[in-house]
Computed example of a mutant assay.
Amino acid sequence: MDLTLVMVITVVVVALVFDYTNGFHDAANAIATSVSTRALTPRVALAMAAILNFAGALLGVGVAQTIQGIIAIEEIPADQSALALTVVMSALVGAITWNLITWYFGIPSSSSHALIGGIVGAGIASATSVDWDTLVTKVAIPLVLSPAIGFLGAFALMTSILWIFRRARPARVARGFRLAQTVSAAGMSLGHGLQDAQKTMGVIVLALVAGGYADGSEVPFWVILAAATAIALGTYSGGWRIMRTLGRRIIDLDPPKGFAAEATAASVLYVMAIGLQAPVSTTHTITSAIMGSGATKRLSAVRWGVARGIITAWIITMPAAAAIAALSYFAATPFLP
Protein backbone atom coordinates (compact mmCIF):
# COMPACT_ATOMS: atom_id res chain seq x y z
CA MET A 1 0.00 0.00 0.00
CA ASP A 2 1.57 3.32 -1.06
CA LEU A 3 2.07 6.26 1.29
CA THR A 4 -0.54 8.46 -0.43
CA LEU A 5 -3.29 5.88 0.01
CA VAL A 6 -2.33 5.37 3.67
CA MET A 7 -2.52 9.13 4.23
CA VAL A 8 -5.88 9.40 2.46
CA ILE A 9 -7.34 6.61 4.59
CA THR A 10 -5.92 8.23 7.72
CA VAL A 11 -7.40 11.64 6.88
CA VAL A 12 -10.79 10.08 6.07
CA VAL A 13 -10.80 8.25 9.42
CA VAL A 14 -9.85 11.43 11.28
CA ALA A 15 -12.57 13.35 9.40
CA LEU A 16 -15.12 10.77 10.55
CA VAL A 17 -13.79 11.12 14.10
CA PHE A 18 -14.43 14.86 13.77
CA ASP A 19 -17.93 14.06 12.53
CA TYR A 20 -18.45 11.84 15.57
CA THR A 21 -17.20 14.56 17.96
CA ASN A 22 -19.48 17.00 16.15
CA GLY A 23 -22.37 14.67 16.97
CA PHE A 24 -21.74 14.42 20.70
CA HIS A 25 -20.62 18.06 20.93
CA ASP A 26 -23.74 19.34 19.19
CA ALA A 27 -26.28 16.72 20.33
CA ALA A 28 -27.59 19.30 22.78
CA ASN A 29 -28.46 21.67 19.92
CA ALA A 30 -31.33 19.49 18.80
CA ILE A 31 -32.73 18.20 22.07
CA ALA A 32 -31.73 20.37 25.06
CA THR A 33 -34.90 22.45 24.95
CA SER A 34 -37.18 19.41 24.63
CA VAL A 35 -35.45 17.59 27.49
CA SER A 36 -35.38 20.62 29.78
CA THR A 37 -39.14 21.19 29.32
CA ARG A 38 -39.77 17.44 29.81
CA ALA A 39 -41.35 17.15 26.38
CA LEU A 40 -39.03 14.17 25.77
CA THR A 41 -36.93 11.95 28.00
CA PRO A 42 -33.17 12.19 27.37
CA ARG A 43 -32.78 8.70 25.86
CA VAL A 44 -35.82 9.02 23.61
CA ALA A 45 -34.66 12.46 22.51
CA LEU A 46 -31.13 11.20 21.76
CA ALA A 47 -32.42 8.22 19.78
CA MET A 48 -34.74 10.44 17.74
CA ALA A 49 -31.97 12.98 17.16
CA ALA A 50 -29.53 10.28 16.01
CA ILE A 51 -31.99 8.77 13.51
CA LEU A 52 -32.95 12.15 12.09
CA ASN A 53 -29.33 13.33 11.98
CA PHE A 54 -28.67 10.33 9.75
CA ALA A 55 -31.70 11.10 7.57
CA GLY A 56 -30.83 14.80 7.33
CA ALA A 57 -27.33 14.00 6.10
CA LEU A 58 -28.83 12.29 3.05
CA LEU A 59 -30.82 15.33 1.92
CA GLY A 60 -28.19 17.30 0.03
CA VAL A 61 -24.55 18.11 -0.70
CA GLY A 62 -24.62 21.88 -1.33
CA VAL A 63 -22.96 22.73 1.99
CA ALA A 64 -20.28 20.08 1.35
CA GLN A 65 -19.42 21.72 -1.98
CA THR A 66 -19.14 25.12 -0.29
CA ILE A 67 -16.69 23.67 2.25
CA GLN A 68 -14.65 22.18 -0.63
CA GLY A 69 -14.43 25.59 -2.24
CA ILE A 70 -12.83 27.42 0.70
CA ILE A 71 -9.29 26.38 -0.23
CA ALA A 72 -7.92 25.43 -3.66
CA ILE A 73 -6.41 22.09 -2.66
CA GLU A 74 -6.37 21.00 -6.31
CA GLU A 75 -3.76 23.68 -7.08
CA ILE A 76 -1.10 21.78 -5.10
CA PRO A 77 0.93 19.74 -7.65
CA ALA A 78 0.03 16.04 -7.94
CA ASP A 79 3.55 15.02 -6.92
CA GLN A 80 3.06 16.82 -3.59
CA SER A 81 0.01 14.86 -2.45
CA ALA A 82 1.57 14.31 0.99
CA LEU A 83 1.74 18.09 1.46
CA ALA A 84 -1.89 18.52 0.33
CA LEU A 85 -3.09 15.80 2.67
CA THR A 86 -1.14 17.35 5.55
CA VAL A 87 -3.06 20.59 4.96
CA VAL A 88 -6.39 18.74 5.26
CA MET A 89 -5.22 16.78 8.31
CA SER A 90 -4.01 19.95 10.05
CA ALA A 91 -7.43 21.55 9.50
CA LEU A 92 -9.08 18.56 11.17
CA VAL A 93 -6.63 18.58 14.09
CA GLY A 94 -7.43 22.24 14.72
CA ALA A 95 -11.18 21.62 14.65
CA ILE A 96 -11.15 18.46 16.76
CA THR A 97 -8.82 19.93 19.38
CA TRP A 98 -10.98 23.01 19.84
CA ASN A 99 -14.15 20.89 19.91
CA LEU A 100 -12.73 18.75 22.71
CA ILE A 101 -11.60 21.78 24.72
CA THR A 102 -15.01 23.44 24.56
CA TRP A 103 -16.84 20.14 25.15
CA TYR A 104 -14.76 19.52 28.30
CA PHE A 105 -15.70 22.91 29.73
CA GLY A 106 -19.35 22.59 28.64
CA ILE A 107 -19.19 25.58 26.28
CA PRO A 108 -21.57 25.38 23.30
CA SER A 109 -19.12 26.71 20.72
CA SER A 110 -19.52 26.07 17.03
CA SER A 111 -18.14 22.94 15.35
CA SER A 112 -18.74 24.73 12.05
CA HIS A 113 -16.62 27.69 13.09
CA ALA A 114 -13.94 25.32 14.36
CA LEU A 115 -13.79 23.38 11.08
CA ILE A 116 -13.81 26.47 8.89
CA GLY A 117 -11.21 28.12 11.12
CA GLY A 118 -9.07 24.98 10.85
CA ILE A 119 -9.33 24.94 7.04
CA VAL A 120 -8.42 28.61 6.74
CA GLY A 121 -5.56 28.33 9.27
CA ALA A 122 -4.04 25.33 7.50
CA GLY A 123 -4.53 27.00 4.11
CA ILE A 124 -2.76 30.20 5.17
CA ALA A 125 0.07 28.31 6.91
CA SER A 126 0.71 26.24 3.77
CA ALA A 127 0.30 29.16 1.36
CA THR A 128 -2.62 27.34 -0.30
CA SER A 129 -5.04 29.70 -2.04
CA VAL A 130 -8.02 30.64 0.13
CA ASP A 131 -11.14 31.68 -1.77
CA TRP A 132 -11.91 34.80 0.23
CA ASP A 133 -15.03 35.59 -1.82
CA THR A 134 -16.58 32.23 -0.93
CA LEU A 135 -15.41 32.62 2.66
CA VAL A 136 -17.10 36.01 3.01
CA THR A 137 -20.29 35.57 0.96
CA LYS A 138 -21.15 31.92 1.65
CA VAL A 139 -19.56 31.45 5.06
CA ALA A 140 -18.87 34.59 7.10
CA ILE A 141 -22.02 36.58 6.27
CA PRO A 142 -24.44 33.64 6.83
CA LEU A 143 -22.61 32.70 10.04
CA VAL A 144 -23.18 36.22 11.36
CA LEU A 145 -26.74 36.57 10.07
CA SER A 146 -28.05 33.16 11.23
CA PRO A 147 -27.91 33.88 15.00
CA ALA A 148 -29.44 37.33 14.47
CA ILE A 149 -32.27 35.80 12.45
CA GLY A 150 -32.64 33.08 15.08
CA PHE A 151 -32.98 35.62 17.89
CA LEU A 152 -35.42 37.91 16.07
CA GLY A 153 -37.41 35.05 14.56
CA ALA A 154 -37.88 33.28 17.89
CA PHE A 155 -38.80 36.57 19.56
CA ALA A 156 -41.44 37.23 16.88
CA LEU A 157 -42.83 33.68 16.99
CA MET A 158 -43.00 33.64 20.78
CA THR A 159 -44.70 37.04 20.78
CA SER A 160 -47.32 35.64 18.39
CA ILE A 161 -47.83 32.57 20.59
CA LEU A 162 -48.34 34.75 23.66
CA TRP A 163 -50.93 36.85 21.83
CA ILE A 164 -52.79 33.93 20.23
CA PHE A 165 -53.04 31.95 23.49
CA ARG A 166 -53.43 34.93 25.82
CA ARG A 167 -56.83 33.73 27.09
CA ALA A 168 -56.05 30.01 27.20
CA ARG A 169 -55.32 28.11 30.40
CA PRO A 170 -51.52 27.93 30.95
CA ALA A 171 -51.58 24.23 31.89
CA ARG A 172 -53.44 23.32 28.70
CA VAL A 173 -51.10 25.44 26.59
CA ALA A 174 -48.06 23.76 28.17
CA ARG A 175 -49.44 20.29 27.41
CA GLY A 176 -50.12 21.21 23.81
CA PHE A 177 -46.69 22.66 23.23
CA ARG A 178 -45.00 19.66 24.81
CA LEU A 179 -46.52 17.62 22.00
CA ALA A 180 -45.60 20.28 19.46
CA GLN A 181 -42.02 20.16 20.71
CA THR A 182 -41.75 16.56 19.55
CA VAL A 183 -42.20 17.87 16.00
CA SER A 184 -39.97 20.92 16.41
CA ALA A 185 -37.19 18.86 18.02
CA ALA A 186 -37.43 16.41 15.13
CA GLY A 187 -37.12 19.29 12.68
CA MET A 188 -34.09 20.60 14.55
CA SER A 189 -32.42 17.17 14.48
CA LEU A 190 -33.04 16.82 10.74
CA GLY A 191 -31.60 20.28 10.14
CA HIS A 192 -28.54 19.48 12.25
CA GLY A 193 -27.79 16.41 10.12
CA LEU A 194 -28.44 18.37 6.93
CA GLN A 195 -25.95 21.06 7.95
CA ASP A 196 -23.20 19.44 9.99
CA ALA A 197 -22.70 16.05 8.33
CA GLN A 198 -22.17 17.82 5.00
CA LYS A 199 -19.22 19.75 6.43
CA THR A 200 -17.39 16.48 7.04
CA MET A 201 -18.33 15.29 3.56
CA GLY A 202 -16.63 18.38 2.14
CA VAL A 203 -13.42 17.68 4.06
CA ILE A 204 -13.35 14.03 2.94
CA VAL A 205 -13.73 15.09 -0.69
CA LEU A 206 -10.85 17.54 -0.16
CA ALA A 207 -8.74 14.59 1.04
CA LEU A 208 -9.73 12.49 -1.98
CA VAL A 209 -8.83 15.36 -4.33
CA ALA A 210 -5.52 15.88 -2.52
CA GLY A 211 -4.68 12.20 -2.93
CA GLY A 212 -5.71 12.10 -6.57
CA TYR A 213 -8.69 9.81 -5.99
CA ALA A 214 -11.40 12.30 -7.02
CA ASP A 215 -11.78 15.47 -9.05
CA GLY A 216 -14.15 17.16 -6.58
CA SER A 217 -17.06 17.43 -9.02
CA GLU A 218 -19.35 15.27 -6.87
CA VAL A 219 -19.64 13.74 -3.41
CA PRO A 220 -19.43 9.90 -3.60
CA PHE A 221 -22.33 8.06 -2.01
CA TRP A 222 -20.05 6.13 0.35
CA VAL A 223 -18.82 9.49 1.72
CA ILE A 224 -22.40 10.61 2.35
CA LEU A 225 -23.25 7.33 4.07
CA ALA A 226 -20.10 7.32 6.22
CA ALA A 227 -20.60 10.93 7.37
CA ALA A 228 -24.27 10.29 8.15
CA THR A 229 -23.41 7.23 10.24
CA ALA A 230 -20.61 8.96 12.17
CA ILE A 231 -22.68 11.99 13.18
CA ALA A 232 -25.63 9.79 14.16
CA LEU A 233 -23.45 7.62 16.40
CA GLY A 234 -21.86 10.70 17.94
CA THR A 235 -25.26 12.24 18.64
CA TYR A 236 -26.51 9.08 20.33
CA SER A 237 -23.46 8.99 22.61
CA GLY A 238 -24.80 12.20 24.13
CA GLY A 239 -23.70 15.70 25.03
CA TRP A 240 -24.76 16.10 28.63
CA ARG A 241 -22.38 18.89 29.67
CA ILE A 242 -23.52 21.24 26.90
CA MET A 243 -27.14 20.14 27.25
CA ARG A 244 -27.18 21.57 30.79
CA THR A 245 -25.88 24.93 29.51
CA LEU A 246 -28.36 25.24 26.64
CA GLY A 247 -31.36 23.77 28.43
CA ARG A 248 -31.09 25.29 31.89
CA ARG A 249 -28.41 27.91 32.38
CA ILE A 250 -29.31 30.43 29.66
CA ILE A 251 -32.98 30.75 30.60
CA ASP A 252 -35.75 28.85 32.37
CA LEU A 253 -37.58 27.33 29.43
CA ASP A 254 -41.21 26.31 29.22
CA PRO A 255 -42.77 24.31 26.32
CA PRO A 256 -43.97 27.31 24.27
CA LYS A 257 -40.55 28.96 24.45
CA GLY A 258 -38.86 25.67 23.62
CA PHE A 259 -41.11 25.20 20.60
CA ALA A 260 -40.52 28.77 19.38
CA ALA A 261 -36.74 28.36 19.68
CA GLU A 262 -36.61 24.96 17.95
CA ALA A 263 -39.03 25.82 15.14
CA THR A 264 -37.17 29.04 14.34
CA ALA A 265 -33.70 27.48 14.47
CA ALA A 266 -34.74 24.53 12.30
CA SER A 267 -36.19 26.89 9.67
CA VAL A 268 -32.95 28.89 9.55
CA LEU A 269 -30.89 25.71 9.09
CA TYR A 270 -33.05 24.50 6.18
CA VAL A 271 -33.04 27.85 4.36
CA MET A 272 -29.28 28.27 4.73
CA ALA A 273 -28.46 24.69 3.66
CA ILE A 274 -30.91 24.18 0.81
CA GLY A 275 -31.49 27.73 -0.37
CA LEU A 276 -28.04 29.29 0.04
CA GLN A 277 -25.77 26.22 0.45
CA ALA A 278 -24.26 28.07 3.40
CA PRO A 279 -22.57 26.21 6.29
CA VAL A 280 -24.00 27.94 9.36
CA SER A 281 -23.60 27.07 13.02
CA THR A 282 -26.38 24.99 14.54
CA THR A 283 -25.03 25.96 17.98
CA HIS A 284 -25.22 29.68 17.29
CA THR A 285 -28.64 29.42 15.73
CA ILE A 286 -30.38 27.47 18.49
CA THR A 287 -28.66 29.38 21.30
CA SER A 288 -29.72 32.72 19.82
CA ALA A 289 -33.24 31.40 19.28
CA ILE A 290 -33.43 30.31 22.93
CA MET A 291 -32.38 33.80 24.00
CA GLY A 292 -34.89 35.37 21.62
CA SER A 293 -37.82 33.31 22.89
CA GLY A 294 -36.85 34.04 26.49
CA ALA A 295 -36.50 37.78 25.93
CA THR A 296 -40.26 38.03 25.30
CA LYS A 297 -40.81 37.58 29.04
CA ARG A 298 -38.36 40.30 29.98
CA LEU A 299 -34.76 40.97 29.05
CA SER A 300 -33.63 40.11 32.58
CA ALA A 301 -35.08 36.60 32.15
CA VAL A 302 -32.09 35.74 29.98
CA ARG A 303 -28.99 35.00 32.03
CA TRP A 304 -26.79 37.36 30.08
CA GLY A 305 -23.67 36.42 32.06
CA VAL A 306 -23.87 32.88 30.69
CA ALA A 307 -24.78 34.21 27.26
CA ARG A 308 -21.78 36.54 27.35
CA GLY A 309 -19.45 33.60 28.00
CA ILE A 310 -20.97 31.72 25.08
CA ILE A 311 -20.63 34.73 22.76
CA THR A 312 -16.98 35.08 23.80
CA ALA A 313 -16.43 31.45 22.79
CA TRP A 314 -18.10 32.18 19.45
CA ILE A 315 -15.70 35.06 18.78
CA ILE A 316 -12.52 33.15 19.59
CA THR A 317 -13.43 29.79 18.03
CA MET A 318 -12.36 30.49 14.44
CA PRO A 319 -9.01 32.13 15.28
CA ALA A 320 -8.27 29.52 17.97
CA ALA A 321 -8.96 26.58 15.65
CA ALA A 322 -7.02 28.33 12.87
CA ALA A 323 -4.02 28.81 15.15
CA ILE A 324 -4.06 25.16 16.27
CA ALA A 325 -4.33 24.02 12.63
CA ALA A 326 -1.43 26.24 11.58
CA LEU A 327 0.74 24.95 14.44
CA SER A 328 -0.18 21.37 13.48
CA TYR A 329 0.86 22.02 9.89
CA PHE A 330 4.22 23.53 10.89
CA ALA A 331 4.83 20.65 13.30
CA ALA A 332 4.14 18.07 10.56
CA THR A 333 6.06 19.56 7.63
CA PRO A 334 9.56 18.49 8.81
CA PHE A 335 8.41 14.87 8.53
CA LEU A 336 7.03 15.09 5.00
CA PRO A 337 8.80 13.03 2.32
Rank of each mutant, 00 (worst) to 15 (best):
A57S: 15
F221M: 13
A154S: 14
M318D: 11
A27Q: 06
S281E: 09
A50K: 09
L100H: 09
Y329R: 05
A226F: 11
L115H: 09
A95V: 03
M89K: 01
S288Q: 04
A214R: 08
L143A: 15
T137G: 00
L92S: 05
M188H: 06
V6Q: 12
S112D: 07
A266W: 03
W240F: 13
G292N: 07
I231H: 05
A228N: 10
Y329G: 00
L152R: 07
L190H: 09
A265G: 12
A95P: 04
A323D: 02
G202W: 05
L46G: 06
L157P: 02
I310G: 01
T285F: 11
I96A: 08
A266L: 04
T66D: 04
E75S: 14
N53F: 04
V139M: 00
G121V: 03
T229E: 07
G193K: 08
I242R: 10
P42E: 10
M188N: 08
A266G: 12
L52E: 13
I315W: 12
A261W: 06
G258T: 06
P334N: 06
S300P: 00
A171D: 13
V93E: 03
S189Q: 09
N29S: 10
R38I: 06
M201Y: 00
M48C: 13
T128R: 02
A227H: 03
T283W: 07
M7D: 01
P147A: 11
S90Y: 05
A122C: 09
A325K: 04
L152H: 05
